[in-house]
Amino acid sequence: MSIGNFKERYQSDEAIWRTPASRVWFGVLLLALAAFPFIGNSYHLFIACLIGINVISATGINILTGYTGLISLGHAAFMGVGAYSVAYLSNHLGLPFYVCLPLGGLLAAAVGLVVGIPSLRIKGLYLALATIAAQFILGFVFNEWESVTGGGRGVSLAPAEIAGLKLSTEFELYYLIVAIMIPMLLFARNLFRTRIGRAFIAVRDRDISAEVMGINLLHYKLMSFALSSFYAGVAGGLMAYFFKVVTPEQFSFGLSIFFLAAVVVGGMGTILGGIVGAIFMTLVPEVLDAIIHAFGPGAIALLSPAREIVFGLLIVGFLIFEPRGLAEIWRRIKRAYELWPFRN
């Protein structure tokens, strides 16, 4: 067991990885991420890419819902804005992916700002209603604005390309997604070491005394909306490159619930929570799939409802029994391990 973790400088006390062991583990994790495509098969890679995209998006909704305390029921729609923007910019203006993705994120952020405007007048709970409205209004736009979105059939786009190299297989896209995911996670983590992140949490925990601390509530609520939507937009853009087609059904209300479930299950208000939640929730349907296929072809019709029931039960169950999510369970396990052989 380790008896303590002593620091001589505040800088090391506030570092992300505070012990030598944790820095080593992070290095090992990076190596494992880099080596994974050489070990896994294409199905594994497919799932890994999906997880990476979902981790980015879940981190986005975590900033808004987990850290700032504003429920979002329209996260998928902001992903859609990113995806359609990327498709349009790539198809019509011929821009490369490294321009399209940030622009897609920024456009999503702009739309997020607009949806956040009611926070001028209304408090947290009502904002959930604004996000629902955004989900359905944007869904309507995806379906009806045919010249840009291709309507119900959607639009397809050419693979991402860098220096003449086409990123079209899962193998190549995996590296693209991971290379975007890691800096975005670090960005979010850093944010909560500074005044900006603290202000978000202050808005969540007690918005009245936040004002007395000099925090402009509207300013930070809007910033949180924009940032959260930026993450969603980039994730949506990656989805566009990954599936090579963008359709309205991809960004349904159900997907918004999926991401809400991911942060509830993973743990709201911790970066680890968004990561774990996204991994867990991406794997759940795969496991369900395997189970239901084991029951034979007749059971396949049950897949989609079973998925929904499980998502719903996870939200309800975690909120009742472990409101701080899987991240909290992980923390407890780690602590028990550190203190071994003593009881916590």
Partner: peptide, 23 residues
């Protein structure tokens, strides 16, 4: 519990009911 938890629980409930009706 905080209102945000209670509201989210009804969202989860909605998903369960929707799935259950299909089943």
């Amino acid at each position: 519990r905080p209102a945000i938890s209670v509201v989210m629980v009804t969202v989860g409930l909605a998903a369960v009911l929707h799935g259950a009706a299909q089943m």
